[in-house]
Write a protein that binds this DNA or RNA. Structure first.
Lengths: 346, 346
DNA sequence: CTGAAAGCGCTTACAG
DNA sequence: CTGAAAGCGCTTACAG
């Protein structure tokens, strides 16, 4: 049986309150010689404070929760989630908190899941933004516990932290237009994902603002995976009239496009230019390099967590919440020099 | 003020025990009509069970902890950690637990950190293996709370889950030897990391078993990052006699070797063969492909977590704890065809 | 200055 | 069958 403050108090013939104040260094003063004895006995008994008991009273766990977007196995494999969590963890370290990953979104009912989010283990929550989370965010909001949302498409009442998707898509289109492209395709992300939705509508809007046509044949479904990028390129191949450039809503899908293009013998960037979105670290190691839109994902995660800590402490939030993107030109884009339609389909 | 079971009991004029048994569906039977009333009032009051209070009594939080190996910012960016966490999260979902990431290893004293690990928020702990964790594992072990260790170099009393590093290094060496290489270099990982230490000694041993010489000039320090692979290749360049092949203790460093080799105009694999270790997913997307040793990192994480759940439940552990590796041949290895020493150093 | 006591929100032996 | 009560390990008003 682990030792408690009662054991320490008994051993020293003093009250538990004195022990408590001694161990916590306040708020009530305790004479140094008493304090010393308390610490000595604590060490002797291998006393460890029980934070559960403390939390029950203080209503603080010094832990924040992270809610994964989708109830999918292997959700953790995406570079985006990894970067966000990395940023959140960094902020937690700075702020002396720990991070609880809720793992049961896919395994229990929504009611039970919300109960878990609100069961006292976390002082506040970081949501990633996906449609499946919206009703959950709503319930959490009703409850009044502090939360923040990472990504586009958060409810208006929430504190959200996101990249400037509009700017990013403009940068991608303008880069391609500057190179002389007029026929530009788009691989979209999950229809349930806030950023994906945002980037698609930014694509449509910016294209028409620039006087460029958007063919519905040139917009492909995707789900942020390499595989969905590959199948986008597969259907590109069967088009009678092909775009000379493709923007993918994230790097993974851009990699899929590149990979499939390579397999099909389509020269990149001579015959087809490809732009990604994210500039995630492992894309940076790709050869030949991928032209992409950089967004500071880890910093967004950090800012979100710091914002959450401010909400928890009922301080005003002074964190930046809207992050500019940046075009990173590498080897996957160039002026269109070869006619894409001349390509032989096997 | 959130509602408690007392509020429900008061409203229905029944005892809190009945409410508790009703909400938990037992162990004491509660008549269905009472149960229904309890659930109705619970919903009406927006009652949410407080797991902190429950945990204080049951001494179970249905949460396990994950202890990161090193007190480094951006620790989460490594693909290895990501894969382990992914496997652990998957197991958590299966077992209806959540995962607490301890974030303060670098921010607080060791004593305070151990106190956090033992403060009741986690029912058991998953450690990754690094030297800095050994004294911490020792203290946790003394305390008697369930824990498992992922990776090589765990204390003998612990349940550890790891890849067969010896086999992996043998596979790498034998593959290169079969191609005709006799001069093989090695980029080692952090000197404080269990797997890194293990792979290096496996390299030395297997080389000598195969009658191949190990030059100390051909073993480079590394720290599992791309950059350290690059600097290994930089010092390779200045060697009077160069190996024809390099094994890196993980994929990141192998990527660094490849990248630097490309920058220096060294033809891969004609002039230099490179073998990695891990076969992490984003390596799989590399072009040209990296020959590497596959280890099932995510499965190891899953098995470790499942093992931990069995320890927590005091059941016998039946999880596999030693995982075979597998050679994956891609484009970075071939028979040595060009003399490496002929290469011009700029 | 310090101790005795109430209480955080639950679970669960103990009575009736 | 169900209620009253003890208690988990702490914090913190309340007395003295």
């Amino acid at each position: 049986m682990p030792a408690t403050i009662r054991d320490i108090a008994k051993k020293l013939n003093i009250s538990v309150s004195t022990v408590s104040y001694a161990l916590n260094n306040g708020p009530r003063p305790v004479p140094d010689h008493v304090k010393k004895k308390v610490f000595d006995v604590a060490k002797e008994l291998d006393y460890r404070p029980n934070r559960i008991a403390r939390s029950l009273i203080t209503r603080r766990s010094r832990t924040i929760g992270f809610v994964l977007e989708k109830p999918e196995h292997n959700i953790f494999l995406g570079p985006y989630v990894q970067l966000i969590v990395n940023g959140v963890i960094n902020a937690c370290e700075d702020h002396r908190h720990d991070l609880l990953l809720f793992a049961q979104h896919g395994a229990v009912s929504q009611e039970e899941f919300v109960n878990q989010l609100l069961d006292g283990r976390a002082d506040g929550l970081v949501f990633t933004c996906g449609e499946s989370l919206l009703p959950i965010i709503e319930e959490v909001h009703q409850r009044g516990i502090p939360f923040v949302v990472v990504g586009a498409g958060a409810p208006p009442y929430s504190h959200s932290f996101q990249a400037d998707n509009d700017l990013g898509i403009e940068q991608a289109i303008d880069h391609l237009a500057d190179l002389g492209h007029t026929k530009i395709g788009f691989v979209r992300g999950n229809a349930t994902h806030g950023d994906a939705i945002h980037r698609l509508s930014a694509f449509r809007r910016t294209m028409s603002e620039r006087g460029l046509a958007v063919h519905s044949d040139w917009v492909w479904e995707g789900n942020f995976t390499v595989e969905s990028g590959e199948s986008a390129l597969a259907s590109y191949l069967s088009l009678p009239e092909k775009p000379t450039a493709i923007i993918a809503a994230n790097d993974e899908m851009a990699i899929g496009v590149l990979r499939k293009a390579r397999a099909e013998g389509i020269e990149i960037p001579q015959r087809l230019s490809v732009v990604g979105f994210d500039d995630s670290p492992h894309t940076q190691g790709l050869y030949p390099g991928l032209t992409t839109i950089h967004q500071p994902v880890s910093e967004i995660g950090s800012a979100a967590a710091h914002g959450l800590f401010q909400l928890i402490d009922e301080r005003p939030t002074d964190q930046p919440s809207f992050f500019p993107t940046r075009l990173v030109v590498r080897a996957s884009t160039a002026a269109p020099t070869k006619e894409p339609n001349n390509h032989e389909i096997k």
